[in-house]
Each structure stands twice: as C-alpha cells, then as structure tokens.
C-alpha cells in the first residue's frame, strides 16, 4: 500500500524486510547500533544517518553487528562471509572511506567469480552515503561511484527516490553478485515518495523515465535527478519538453533506454555530481556518440561538478554542485 516514506524510512523498511525474510542476511558497520561498550543506551545511533535505527532491538547482536573502526576488516569480512553462505549488508559510513578498504572489493569481492572460474558466489551489499551538500568538505562529500562502475564484477546502484531506494535495496540483497549501493546524504530527508508496504524488487539495468518529452533527453544520476527535474520544470515554461531519464543503476547501465530516447529527441544533456574526467557523464556521452551519433542534432552537453575536491565554504560548495540553472542552460544550448 502506498504511503509516503522518506528515503531513510524506505531503506530501513527494506532492511527490516530482508532481515525478516532471510535468516542469512546480516547487517554490519560502524555505529549501526551504536553504544556498544559504552555506559549509555544501546542502539544509540542506528548508523551515522539513523537508517538502521531499531534493527538491533528487533534482530539482536548476532545479526546486527557493530564493528570497530576497521573498514578493511569488516568490509573484507562481509565479502568473505558472502562466499560462505551469508548475505551480509555492510554499511560504509561514507564512500570516501573506501580509500582505506578498497582492496577488499576491488581485488577480492569483485574478482572472485572470474578468478575462480565461475565457482564463487559473493552476495554482499555495501551500503554507503555519498554526495555534497552537507558542508562536510573534501573527505566526506564525494560522488565516487564511477570508480566502482569501472570495476567488472561489481554492480552499482544509485537510487534517487524513496520508492527506488526500497525496491533496489531489496534487489541488491537478493542479488548473488557484489553490489555497491549509493545513498545520497541529502536525500535521506529530502526524498519522499509513495512506497508500497509489501516488499518489492526493482530489476537492475532498468532506467526510470521520470518525465517524457520530445525535445531534449536529460540523463541524471542520484540526487541530480531532482536537480534536473527542477530544470525540466523551468524549461517546460519555455516550451522545451525534457525527457528525463534516471538510470537507477550505472552498472549494469540501461543503454537501450538512453539510446532510444536520444534517437527520439536528438539532443542529450548528462548531469552528474561526480567529477568530469572518466565519470558517468563522459561515459554516457561516449555511449551516445558511439551508438547514436547520427541521431544527434547538437553536441552532447555534460553538466558535472568541476575537477576539484569538494570545498567546505558554503559559498564554494554551492558553486561546486551542478545547479538546475546550469542544467537548464545546457538544455537551451543544445536546443539552440
């Protein structure tokens, strides 16, 4: 039944439902309960962003595991446990912290299936938050998903709505391959949506058409879907009809939907909060140049964050994040 849930509530409901349906599902991470070994209350935090709040009380310490601050050890443990019959969901508090534990995904989990000749199954989910907007600066604000999309063996999921967050997290946990699940820190409260109460699973590699239009295709990722939506509203007033596509997963990527749309509109703007070099914007632009070049009526425009670390000062950070104004301007450029 459809109720309005926030992104955070939708994620928590998904976690609760997968924990209920499958006894091999465990959740681990730093402070996901909180308060272990401390004199105050248990489940004090429920994760840095409160997503896992309440799970400890329902499922207990054997399934909701707080960890020391040891990302290599517990991300690796999640990967290792996944090859041994569990379906671990590990929370990496900020994707920036992947810097201290990347090996366990990059060289281990992502590679097992291939290195071991198709004999390994590693159903692990790494949940992690990303993105700018919280004034948390260079080490807590990055949108690093292109790093993961680059790695064969990993699946990369980036929900933009509460509905997608729940359905994609359930799919991620039921999936038998390693999945990195990106949650935008600003969306935990900002994204709210009709979310069915029953469990449901959204297939990977299936883009969502946020709106349909004839004039220009905008592909936007994660929080940028909301930015692009605002731009599309502005553009509609100028009689520019935007077709807005949210890929939802960038590995696998729903190439067909993007190409189909560009073949119709002949124009493409890609919006990505990640940096411009080797990012999804460049990747999708290259895809279209390769496979739908003849449909293009104008050069592809990419709207991304600049090639800088994420700055602290609110004035600078606001300038760093792609804006609806920039997206609308890019759309006008390709329409000109």
């Amino acid at each position: 039944m459809a109720r309005i849930l926030t992104y955070r509530e939708a994620l928590r409901e998904a976690l609760r439902q997968v924990l209920e349906e499958d006894p091999t599902v465990i959740v681990m991470g730093e402070d996901i309960a909180g308060g272990l070994g401390a004199p105050g209350e248990l489940d004090a935090w429920g994760g840095d962003m409160g997503v896992t709040k309440g799970l400890f009380g329902q499922f207990g310490p054997e399934r909701i595991l707080d960890t020391p601050i040891s990302e290599s050890a517990y991300i690796g443990a999640a990967v290792g446990a996944a090859t041994c019959g569990l379906r671990p969901i590990a929370e990496l508090m900020f994707v920036d912290f992947m810097g201290v534990c990347f090996d366990q995904l990059l060289n281990q989990g992502a590679k097992f299936r291939y290195m071991f000749g198709g004999k390994a199954k590693t159903p692990v989910v790494i949940r992690t938050q990303y993105g700018a907007g919280y004034r948390t600066a260079a080490q807590h604000s990055q949108s690093l998903y292109p790093l993961f999309a680059h790695v064969p063996g990993l699946k990369v999921v980036i929900p933009s709505t509460a509905y997608d967050a729940k359905g994609l997290l359930i799919s991620s946990v039921r999936d038998d391959d390693p999945v990195v699940f990106f949650e935008h820190k600003v969306l935990y409260d900002e994204a709210r949506d009709h979310v069915p109460e029953a469990p449901y699973a959204i297939p990977f590699g299936e883009a969502n058409f946020v709106r349909e239009g004839e004039d220009v295709t905008i592909v936007a990722i994660g929080r940028m879907v909301h930015v692009a939506k605002r731009a599309a509203d502005k553009l509609a007033q100028e009689k520019i009809e935007v077709e807005l596509i949210d890929p939802r997963t960038i590995s696998p990527l729903d190439e067909d939907s993007i190409l189909e749309s560009v073949e119709k509109t002949g124009r493409l703007v890609v919006v990505d909060e990640a940096h411009p070099r080797c990012g999804m914007a460049a990747d999708i632009a290259a895809l279209v140049a390769d496979k739908a070049f003849k449909s293009l009526k104008a050069p592809v425009k990419c709207v991304t964050a600049p090639h800088t670390p994420v700055p602290f000062s609110p004035v600078l950070e606001d300038a760093f994040i792609p804006s609806d104004m920039a997206v609308a301007a890019a759309a006008r450029t390709v329409m000109a």
Binding site: Y163, G167, P196, A198, P199, Y200, A201, I202, N208, F209
Partner: peptide
C-alpha cells in the same frame, strides 16, 4: 512503470 510497480510486489 505503474503496471510494473504492481508486478514487482513480492
């Protein structure tokens, strides 16, 4: 998408 939303429910 709405028809799929119905079908995706477990």
């Amino acid at each position: 998408e709405d028809m799929l939303r119905i079908k995706r429910i477990d």
